[in-house]
């Protein structure tokens, strides 16, 4: 179980990375944390000609607040988010989600941008990016463009990232004082990919929910925003009838499929359970969903 041969090159600028991407096309793969890529290489499931190590691009590192946004550099490691006071204060959704993300040794290398770019529908960061209304900053070395997370995830492992682009950072609007977050997921074993997970952001005022963004992971080809459930819950207090209506609307919002251990029907059911728990947690801040 040894990786096939490939070349390796390190770059320190976005321009250099892009130039290699253009030169090699599909044969080049960007290497950030490598926590997914290297496993697939060892199993020879992927046979790139060249790996472009982008971890040396300084501009892609770090967490900062600027211009009313929390900016998370693409190369920010999971562990950096886990330990960031800034994130805990400004966007606690990410802090809530990170313990679910694999294990310490993986979090020490895996990156935020890498996870978002890989766009695994069962992964935590794509769902959080969508729930927290993140905006992705993409660059091809000369031009930057911005794409809302809601437009970025297109289909299974497919995103709006062009073949000659890198994710530079994701920017999140700083939440207002009424904004609250909840994250939870169900995995057979701690740190496994979730069967189903949920990331929720919403304004809570006088016990009433507003401006909800409800996103599921593991129940579709992309992180799935539950617009129907949002509509059912916005402006409401979360009483049982309202929750029942929101759960009922999930059948339109999500599209789970069977996996090795769990059927689509079970996932749909579990999504409803998680919605209920997340809403409860949102309304009663501090309670674990």
């Amino acid at each position: 179980m040894k990786a096939p041969r490939f070349a390796y090159t390190r770059v320190t600028t976005v321009a250099d990375a892009v130039s290699l991407l253009r030169q090699h096309g599909d044969d080049a793969r960007l290497l950030a944390g490598g926590q997914t890529l290297l496993a697939t290489l060892n199993m020879r499931l992927s046979e790139p000609v060249v790996l472009v190590d982008i971890t040396g691009i300084e501009a892609l590192h770090g967490v900062a607040v600027q211009d009313g946004f929390l900016r998370i550099g693409a190369l920010t490691r999971h562990v950096d988010i886990e330990r960031s006071e800034l994130v805990a204060q400004r966007l606690p959704l990410l802090t809530q989600a990170v313990p679910f993300l694999a294990h310490a040794a993986i979090r020490n290398r895996g990156t935020f941008g890498g996870s978002v770019a890989f766009a695994d529908p069962a992964a935590e960061w794509p769902a959080c990016a969508l729930a927290a209304d993140g905006e992705l900053i993409l660059s091809n070395g000369t031009n930057e463009r911005r794409v809302m997370a809601g437009d970025f995830f297109i289909d299974l492992y497919q995103t709006d990232l062009h073949p000659d682009e890198l994710i530079i950072a994701v920017e999140f609007p700083l939440p207002g004082r009424q904004r609250r977050f909840a994250f939870t997921e169900l995995a057979r074993r701690h740190g496994d990919y979730a069967i189903v997970g949920i990331a929720v952001a919403g304004d809570i005022s006088g016990g009433v929910m507003g401006d909800l963004r409800i996103v599921f992971l593991g129940v579709g080809n992309t992180p799935m925003r539950a617009l129907g459930a949002e509509t059912a819950l916005n402006g409401k207090r979360g009483d049982p009838a309202v929750l029942a209506a929101a759960i009922a609307s999930l059948s339109e919002d999500i599209a789970p499929s069977d996996d090795l251990y769990t059927s689509a029907a079970a996932k749909s059911h579990l999504a409803g359970v998680l919605l209920q728990r997340a809403v409860k947690s949102l309304l009663h801040e501090g309670e674990t969903p």
């Binding site: 290497l31 926590q35 290297l38 496993a39 060892n42 190590d53 040794a105 993986i106 020490n108 290398r109």
Partner: peptide, 12 residues
């Protein structure tokens, strides 16, 4: 930092 040795290339 602890890491998985099998998910890290020596060149990295």
């Amino acid at each position: 930092d602890i890491v998985r040795g099998c998910l890290t290339l020596a060149v990295q």
